[in-house]
Design a protein around this nucleic acid. Structure first.
Lengths: 230, 230
DNA sequence: CGACCGTATATTGTATCCAATATGCGCCAC
DNA sequence: GTGGCGCATATTGGATACAATATACGGTCG
C-alpha cells in the first residue's frame, strides 16, 4: 500500500512550474523571478523558492547565487548523450525485467498502451509525457531495481521535455507507439534479446530524431538565448 | 574557467549536514528536527529547510510531509543494486575515457593517488571520501560525458556513505588503493579492456565486501531502527 | 476493560519583513 | 571621449512570526 499524496503549497507550486517548463511556457535560459511567480500563483515566495530548489534537483532549473534561477538547458551534445545513457540503462533494465513478466504485468502495460493510443487520436500532447513514462516504468518494474529506476525517472524527465516538442511537430508519436507495441510483443514471447534490442533502437532513434530536429531548428537562426546548465 | 564559489548560509548548512550524515553523526532513519539543527548551527530554519531539500535531491534524506525529514537509508538489496549500477555505468565511462587520456591526465591522476596514499598512511578517513570521488571522476573526465558524470556523482555520494564505515573498519582502503593503481597502469598501456575489467571488479568487489559487512553487522542483532527511503 | 474520540502539544508549512548582494546608470577624472 | 568609481534599484537570501497539520495522551462511552 502506497501512502496517500498529501499536497502542500510547495508541491503544487513545483508541479505547476514543472508543467510550464515541460510545456515550454518558460523557455530554456529564461530567468524565473520568484516574486513574479509567487504573485501569479497566489502564494508567497517561500514555497516558490522551495519548489525551484526541487526542480533544480530534477535538473530542470539552475540556480546562480544572488542572481536567481533560470530554466536549464542542455547542449545538443548533452541531449545526444542523455539518450545514449538511457538506451544503455534501460536496455539493461528490460533485459532483467522480461523474464519476470507475468500476465498481470502485460495486462497493465496493455492498458497504458491503449490510453496512449487514445491520447494519440485526440492529439492530447500534454498527457503524452506522463503516459510515456508510465509505459516505460511498467516495462521495467518486474526487474525490481528501485535505485536504477530512480535514475531513469530523472533522465526521462529531462528527455521528455525535449521529446515533447519534437514529437508534437514531427508526428513521432505514432512511430513511438508502434515501437512500443513491437517491444511488448517481443516481451510477450519472452524474447529477451529482441525486446532489449528493440528498446535500445527505440530510444536511440528518438534521440537521433530529436537531435536532427534541434540542429535544423538551430540552423534556422532561431537560436534562443543560450544558458548552459551548471 | 569555473565560476568562483560564493557561499551562502544555505550551502554551508547543506555541507555541514551532509558531512554529518556521511560521517554517521546522524544515523540512518534518524529524524532531523529543523529547529534543533537551526539552533545548533546558529541559523534560522529557512536555510535548514532548503539544505534538507538539497540533500533530499542527493538522496541522503527523505521528506515526509508534515512529519519532517529523516536520514534515508537503503536496504541491503538496494546497496547491492547501487554498486552493480555503478559498475555498469562507470565501466562504460572508462571504456570511453581511456583512448582520450593524455600525459596531463595521468599526471593529475597520479597526484590524487599520491594524496590518497598519504591519507591512507595518516588514517585520514574523512578525506578519503573526497579523494576517492576525485580519483574516479578524473579517470572518467576524458570521456567527456557530463550528463553521465552527474549521475555517477550522485551514485558515489550514496555509496561513499556506506563505504566509509566498511573501509574504515576492514582496512579496505589499502586494497582499494592497490586496485586504483592497477587500473591506472592498464590505462597507461591504453589497454581499454583491462582497465574496464579491473574497474568493474573494483566496484563490484567493494560492493560485495560492503554487503557482507552489513549482513554480518545485521546478524549481530545490532539492527538500528529501519526507515526506508521513499 | 477496551476502543474510540477529542484535545493538547510538538513540529512542520507559509507569510511577512528586513538585510545582503548584484546589476546598471551616471558622474567624474584623466 | 573613455575608463573607472560609486550610488541607486531590483532581486534574492535570511530571520521572525503565525497558521496548519500530525502525534500522543487522557477521558469517556460501550
Amino acid at each position: 500500500m502506497v501512502p496517500i499524496e498529501r499536497p502542500t503549497v510547495t508541491s503544487m507550486t513545483r508541479d505547476a512550474l514543472r508543467e510550464r517548463i515541460l510545456r515550454g511556457t518558460y523557455a530554456a535560459g529564461e530567468p524565473l523571478r520568484q516574486d513574479a511567480i509567487a504573485e501569479q500563483l497566489g502564494v508567497s515566495r517561500i514555497p516558490v523558492r522551495e519548489a525551484l530548489r526541487l526542480l533544480e534537483a530534477e535538473g530542470l532549473v539552475t540556480f546562480n547565487p544572488h542572481r536567481g534561477a533560470i530554466v536549464s538547458s542542455l547542449s545538443i551534445a548533452e541531449i545526444e548523450e542523455l539518450f545514449e545513457l538511457r538506451a544503455d540503462i534501460e536496455g539493461d533494465l528490460i533485459h532483467r525485467a522480461v523474464p519476470h513478466m507475468t500476465a498481470e504485468h502485460f495486462a497493465a502495460i496493455q492498458d497504458v498502451l491503449d490510453a496512449f493510443e487514445a491520447a494519440l487520436r485526440s492529439e492530447n500532447v500534454a498527457g503524452w509525457g506522463g503516459l510515456n513514462w508510465q509505459f516505460h516504468s511498467m516495462l521495467y518494474a518486474p526487474a525490481n531495481r528501485p535505485v536504477t529506476m530512480g535514475v531513469v525517472q530523472k533522465l526521462h524527465q529531462h528527455s521528455d521535455r525535449y521529446s515533447r516538442m519534437q514529437l508534437a511537430l514531427t508526428h513521432g508519436q505514432a512511430r513511438a507507439h508502434a515501437e512500443h507495441c513491437a517491444i511488448v510483443r517481443a516481451a510477450r514471447r519472452h524474447d529477451v534479446r529482441s525486446a532489449e534490442s528493440l528498446l535500445r533502437k527505440h530510444i536511440q532513434g528518438a534521440g537521433r530524431a530529436l537531435v536532427e530536429f534541434l540542429r535544423a531548428q538551430q540552423a534556422d537562426g532561431a537560436s534562443p538565448r543560450r544558458a548552459r546548465h551548471a
